[in-house]
């Protein structure tokens, strides 16, 4: 069970980092508003700090 959580958490962490970079690019191209971008950035931040410690411990 614990091993599965670790295996799952890694790709989720990397996706959360995408949420830090992609929304600003979309904001730059006028594809999203600042409010949406800020919400996505916050979501990416929270997901990173929840999931990254699960797999970074052993690396």
């Amino acid at each position: 069970m614990k091993k599965n959580i670790v295996i799952l958490s890694k790709p989720i962490s990397w996706v959360s980092l995408m949420l830090i970079v992609v929304p600003p690019v979309l904001y730059f191209t006028d594809a999203v508003t600042m409010e949406i971008m800020n919400a996505l950035l916050l979501a990416g931040t929270l997901i990173w700090f929840v999931t990254a410690p699960l797999w970074m411990r052993g690396e």
């Binding site: 980092l17 730059f28 931040t45 990173w48 990254a52």
Partner: peptide
């Protein structure tokens, strides 16, 4: 743990500022 996220936040600061 914070390091990779923090570097990308700096990049995000740059992109948003350009916008």
């Amino acid at each position: 743990i914070a390091a990779p996220w923090m570097i990308l936040v700096f990049v995000a600061c740059g992109i948003v500022s350009l916008a």
